[in-house]
Amino acid sequence: MIDTIIFDFGDVFINLDFDATQKALHELGIKEWNSELDKLNKSYEVGKIDELEFIKGVQKHTNGAELVTIREAWNALLLDFPLYRLEFLQMISSKYRLFLLSNTDSTHIDKFEHKVGQSFARDFYSCFEKVYFSFEIGQRKPDENTYKYIIGNHNLVPKKTLFVDDKLENIEGAKNVGLQTWHINPKTEDVTSLLEIIKTI
């Protein structure tokens, strides 16, 4: 019997277009996302470096792009957050313990909050018992310790806890600590199908 749900954020609630950021960065001179940039990104996602350090690090790989232009390119992936998903979340928040666990950075969260407005963002966050962003907690999925951190903080029972994510590696990490999982496909599925999924677990 599921009594708790841990949700991912991107491509579960807010729609993303990774190609948009890739295209925008390409126009700034970044032909490929190499290992150095990947390492920089992961350091930023766990809060080891701040926004300025991250964007300046990316700037070295561009054709001399302005910092503000790089920030805009980095945020290009953030699309819409349909209201019906928030309404669904509000509806189930009285039936389940809800948590948010996202690999993200302060640039994307700042942009999200400005994009949807403070009232919408506040309504969204208030649906959760606790919101966990990787840049705030210093760890990211699919590290098993990230899931254990939340389980331990809230005395969750893994077999009664459903983890929802669109990335397979994150699903595998969750399975390794005993969580129930739903590997959602954002192209063909919507989070509002959750109650039907739960029936099959």
Rank of each mutant, 00 (worst) to 15 (best):
F135V: 01
V131M: 08
P142A: 08
H154V: 06
I150Q: 07
T161I: 07
Y149E: 12
K130I: 06
P158S: 10
Y132Q: 01
F133I: 06
I151L: 15
C127V: 12
F133P: 04
G152H: 02
G138T: 06
T161S: 09
G138P: 07
P158N: 12
I151T: 06
F133V: 09
L156Y: 09
I150F: 12
Y147C: 03
D143H: 14
G138N: 08
Y132V: 01
G138A: 07
N155H: 13
H154M: 05
I137W: 10
P158D: 10
E144S: 11
F128L: 07
Y132C: 00
T146C: 12
K148M: 13
Q139N: 10
D143C: 12
K159E: 15
T146I: 08
H154G: 07
L156W: 04
T146Q: 04
K148P: 01
K130F: 02
K130A: 14
G152A: 09
N155M: 09
E136K: 14
G152V: 01
G138C: 06
I151M: 11
K130N: 11
F163V: 02
N145I: 15
L162G: 06
H154F: 14
T161L: 02
S134H: 01
N153F: 09
K159P: 00
K130P: 02
F133E: 06
Q139D: 05
G138I: 08
E129Q: 13
K159T: 15
R140P: 00
F133N: 08
I151Q: 09
K159W: 10
C127F: 05
G152M: 02
P158K: 01
P142R: 00
I137S: 03
C127Q: 09
F163M: 02
H154L: 08
F163L: 04
H154N: 14
K148E: 08
V157C: 11
L162S: 05
P158C: 10
S134P: 00
P142C: 06
K159I: 13
F133H: 08
V131A: 13
Q139M: 15
E144V: 13
K160Y: 05
F135G: 06
T161N: 05
L162V: 03
C127E: 10
H154K: 09
F128R: 11
E129R: 13
F133L: 12
N153T: 07
F133R: 07
H154T: 04
D143T: 04
N145T: 15
P142Y: 11
T161C: 05
T161A: 06
N145L: 14
E144R: 14
K160V: 03
F133Q: 00
P158R: 05
L156I: 11
Y147I: 00
